[in-house]
Design a protein around this nucleic acid. Sequence first.
DNA 1: GTGCAGTTGCACAACAATGTGCAATGTACG
DNA 2: CGTACATTGCACATTGTTGTGCAACTGCAC
Lengths: 205, 205
Amino acid sequence: MAPMTTGTPSRADANRRRILDVALTELLRDPDASMDQIARAAGVVRRTVYGHFPSREALVGTLVDGAVEAVAAAHAKGREAAEGPAEAVARGTLAVWEIADRYRILVALAQRSVTVQGIRDRLTPVREACTEVLRQGLDEGVFSSPLPAPALAYVHEQLLFALMEAVNEGMLAAEEAGRSAAVTALTAAGVPASRATELVAKLSD
Amino acid sequence: MAPMTTGTPSRADANRRRILDVALTELLRDPDASMDQIARAAGVVRRTVYGHFPSREALVGTLVDGAVEAVAAAHAKGREAAEGPAEAVARGTLAVWEIADRYRILVALAQRSVTVQGIRDRLTPVREACTEVLRQGLDEGVFSSPLPAPALAYVHEQLLFALMEAVNEGMLAAEEAGRSAAVTALTAAGVPASRATELVAKLSD
DNA sequence: GTGCAGTTGCACAACAATGTGCAATGTACG
DNA sequence: CGTACATTGCACATTGTTGTGCAACTGCAC
């Protein structure tokens, strides 16, 4: 096999990718899924997984790295084109919604015993950026909440997580979910429902 | 020792209770805590725990039973004196807040791999009652949300969980937490921030 | 003190999961 | 076909956890 930067995926690389994909969904279902469960779900033998990742820690770590990167990128992308805190929250929510699974695995792993040391740490830059937007909104009076900005950011995080689970459980139609999430995120921050609905509708035309 | 219905706790009963208490906080910290961790934290040997509970499942089950009962009672108590959906949500939130730890352990265990089969099931009566209140509020126009009632109920649940964690992480002062939670629960449902604040202030005079 | 419930300190078997070694087997590519 | 690499199917040692058995110990009541 040639060391091509681009070209034929070489079955090994394909397997590696598929293992990562399957591991994502499997760990989403059960954060304590064993290497054997993941391997079987990926259609390979446990031994093969160890051919790609030296340890469970490494496998989950790779997964987390990708997710952190994706989430950070989505957050940034959503925020950069925004005018004001409200629009930033709305755009950010809509952007993150595009990579819902990556976000879910991070929150799911972060809120349980620290499977990979430092998920919270690696996620904090994003959370701090989010906190800053919320603080600005609170200062400007665009948002109205009795909560301090950090707590509001945490609520925001869990709110998205909850709605992603709701879609997963069939309580919420996947079509409207993104917009609904954005509206709910805004109203939870104290933005009037009418204004929130209007803003989100404008952004997702 | 006599088979008294009330009276001296008899060291054994005292130990049993302490084990349950410690198990609550320990499982809150790490839902996969081993019997040894729990035993040591309770100041006894692992073998002693098995003298009170035949298995880990039984221990956690007893814990969950008590928590479900407490949460259901709090919810009911908060709702019975309420006039209208908004006040029901506010009172319910404030009531549940009194037994935050019991609530947290339930949500924490329910949202991970099913440690005890049927936590979700045993919690659904409460959730359905909550859903009904929210649905009524949406119908009456007191609440304004793009979310269907079940999804909103789920958001409500996770919102409380998030704020309890926020208190635990020091992001939110324990004093104001209950009122802040109630206000946030209302605004997330689409109640104007001013009205929510006013209502909660009135209820917690 | 004597008795007794409760606790302790082992020892043990059973099981599940991790990580490694190695020979056999498949499979692509020239 | 033959070479090179990936995958497979074991076997194995190791570790952590669960649940049980039993003898010794502790404290409290009588």
